[in-house]
């Protein structure tokens, strides 16, 4: 048993290391000390940035920091939502996309691109806004149907309904793509998932949803522990299962929807990170959720770094890297687990 201090210490060190590393590396390398100075002067108004090259300030503060923060927020959102869904659905192979939420968000985004929708006032935020709306609409419809089928809303029913909706919405996306002309490149690019060239505004979009969703989930960690033993058992232990299940599903969907809205579909983070965290530091959701967030953020920051440096100057979609890294890691974990048992 590792102590909690060790668990959080190592995780935070990893996160800060990944952030500094990712900000530092690129077509122009920025010394770590300068990064600290820039962040100090720009974010905290400390008088430390005077001797830093203005180009570095611009690279760090305008380009790389928002990109790294966005990657971190998306990674954290997907990982905590994944951890919560796995516990709730009693399935270590569940992931945020299983309930049709990401498909719902994708439909919103793809439709925005296809129809060239641009809402007044929010303008360029039309896409993330609409995709969060469609994500929420999807989870509400899925839950409504699940309740219609089975009043007690057993987990099995929810998963099945989610799969049906995922398939349906997936075909809607395919339909749109089939009808697409000029917007094809744009739509495919978005679907592959990326955090590049988004800037501070996207950080601003995801942040409120991230805080709201994460807080709700972090307030339900004990309940997740109980519910991962089965819903009946959770009720025996005193959990108000109906209410808590709803809260967790909605919070998870908000997080997933917001992540998809700002970065497209980035797979495997929600699946692999909670699994890995559980292997490293135990199943107790009280710690599993926050630790998954930290490790998920670090993971996506590093994979994003890989995506823009590996065949530089070309940029790979980060979704491709997470899948390329995530799938083999996952396979190795599974094999090791099998061997041990």
């Amino acid at each position: 048993m590792k102590s909690n201090v060790t668990k959080y210490g190592i995780s935070f060190t990893l996160l800060i290391g990944a952030m500094l590393f990712a900000i530092s590396i690129g077509s122009v390398s920025v010394p770590i000390l300068d990064i600290v100075k820039v962040i100090g002067s720009e974010a905290f108004r400390l008088p430390v940035g005077a001797d830093v090259d203005p180009m570095y300030v611009s690279i760090v503060y305008e380009i790389r920091l928002p990109r790294v923060l966005l990657a971190g927020l998306v990674g954290a959102s997907l990982a905590i939502a994944g951890a919560a869904f796995q516990g709730l659905l009693r399935n270590p192979l569940a992931e945020p996309y299983i309930l049709g939420v990401s498909s719902g968000a994708s439909v919103g985004a793809v439709a925005t691109l296809f129809f060239g929708i641009s809402l007044p006032v929010i303008g360029m935020f039309t896409l993330p806004f609409l995709s969060i709306i469609t994500a929420l609409a999807t989870i509400i419809i899925v839950l409504y149907f699940a309740r219609k089928i089975d009043r007690t809303m057993r987990v099995e029913t929810i998963i099945l309904t989610g799969i049906i909706f995922s398939a349906f919405l997936g075909s809607v996306i395919s339909l749109i793509i089939a009808l697409t002309g000029d917007e094809l490149q744009q739509i495919i690019g978005w679907l592959l998932g990326s955090v590049s060239m988004r800037g501070w505004s996207y950080v601003g979009i995801i942040l409120p949803f991230f805080i709201f969703g994460s807080l709700i989930l972090l307030m339900n960690t004990k309940e997740l522990n109980a519910m991962s033993l089965g819903e009946e058992r959770a009720q025996h232990l005193g959990v108000d299962v109906g209410k808590r299940k709803m809260l967790i599903l909605i919070a998870g969907s908000i997080l997933t929807g917001a992540a998809v809205a700002v970065s497209g579909t980035i797979g495997f983070v929600g699946l692999v990170i909670p699994h890995l965290t559980r292997k490293l530091w135990g199943s107790d959701h009280v710690h599993l959720l926050p630790l998954s967030m930290i490790i998920g953020a670090s993971f996506l920051i590093l994979t994003d770094l890989l995506s823009r440096t590996i065949i530089s100057p070309q940029v790979l979609p980060v979704g491709v890297i997470t899948a390329l890294v995530g799938a083999p890691v996952f396979a190795i974990i599974l094999i090791k687990q099998r061997r041990r048992s």
Binding site: M1, K222, E223, L229, V239, R278, S283
Partner: peptide, 18 residues
């Protein structure tokens, strides 16, 4: 069947939830 590898103490402690 159990899905997640909780420790015995974690499992027992869940009983204090109420």
């Amino acid at each position: 069947p159990q899905v997640f590898p909780y420790t015995v103490k974690e499992m027992v402690s869940l009983g204090r939830y109420a």
